[in-house]
């Protein structure tokens, strides 16, 4: 199909169309965020600002605790990623290598659990967080996100450990290393790509999560970006600050866009391993 010139042009057009469709809503936010206030909601719609104006960005950081939201999202993301990866590596290694009695059933149970939408657990989760004094804290979010991301992390890491050759580990045991030492000194360095893939995906999930953040946090001090943006509004419903929202959307999504550009191949591998293996 792609041998003829016409075929090749059609193919290039298809690729361009797919890319344009994927980027359009994001690009429209970027354009909106750079318009002077008077042009944001102009009728008819202006497709390009008359001058590039960054005041929406200044506004969203100055008039609102947006920097706090970003910091919270970052802290929760890093905490969740670290905790999930650490616990996930140990568990996945045990499931893959250490012949756990009942391990297979547990893995399937974990998978089944992870398929339920978050709505199924938020009401008791809020009670639990209240009892534990973790309501309105970043720690509470980290613990909840870790629990939600562990099934995925365990499945991806286990799929990777299963493919590692066993001889290296057996040689390490013969050299007198304990299982724990083998995991840390031999297996983990070999698994760096899989651990990185898992960490990237868990960070993205955590950065994007809305329902639990909305349920467990009702104060700005611990509020994360998605909830913060969804709550951005003007004095009245008729006065939604679309320029500021657009600026906030761009600032929030830019790190994710950068991660996708940098780690596209890893993300594809991780998604495939996580979903298809199951």
């Amino acid at each position: 199909m792609r041998s003829t010139l016409r075929g090749r042009a059609l193919f290039a057009l298809a690729v361009a169309a797919v890319a344009a469709w994927s980027l359009a809503p994001f690009l429209w936010q970027a354009i909106t965020s750079l318009k002077p206030a008077a042009e944001v909601a102009a009728v008819p719609v202006r497709y390009w600002p008359s001058v590039l104006d960054f005041s929406s960005y200044a506004q969203v950081f100055k008039a609102r605790p947006f920097a706090t939201y970003i910091w919270n999202s970052f802290v929760v993301g890093v905490g969740t990623t670290a905790l999930t990866t650490a616990l996930g590596v140990c568990a996945a290694y045990a499931f893959s290598r250490l012949g756990l009695p009942g391990g297979r059933a547990a893995l399937i149970g974990i998978l089944g659990l992870s398929l339920f939408p978050g709505t199924v657990l938020i009401v008791p989760l809020k009670m639990l967080a209240t009892k534990a004094g973790l309501l309105n804290t970043r720690t509470g979010l980290v613990i909840a996100y870790t629990a939600l991301n562990l099934p995925f992390a365990i499945w991806v890491l286990k799929a990777f450990f299963d493919r590692l050759p066993r001889d290296v580990e057996e040689a390490a045991w013969l050299d007198g290393l304990s299982r724990w030492q083998t995991l840390w000194r031999i297996v983990l360095p070999l698994s760096a790509p899989a651990v990185a893939t898992t960490a990237i995906l868990v960070f993205i999930f955590s950065w994007n999560e809305f329902l639990i953040a909305q349920t467990l946090v009702s104060r700005d001090a611990a509020r994360t970006v998605p909830v913060g943006i969804a709550m951005l509004s003007g004095v009245t419903v008729y006065e939604v600050p679309w320029g500021q929202i657009a600026a906030a959307v761009v600032v929030t999504t830019l790190p994710v866009v950068a991660m996708v550009l940098a780690f596209q191949r890893r993300i594809v591998e991780g998604l495939t391993a996580g979903a298809v293996k199951g």
Partner: peptide, 26 residues
Amino acid sequence: AAVLIPWALPTAVMAMAWRWIFNADS
């Protein structure tokens, strides 16, 4: 990478972007 971007962006955040796209006035 371009195609993956919609999947990776926060749903709630992009929902605001869509609200703006579907805004009644502008």
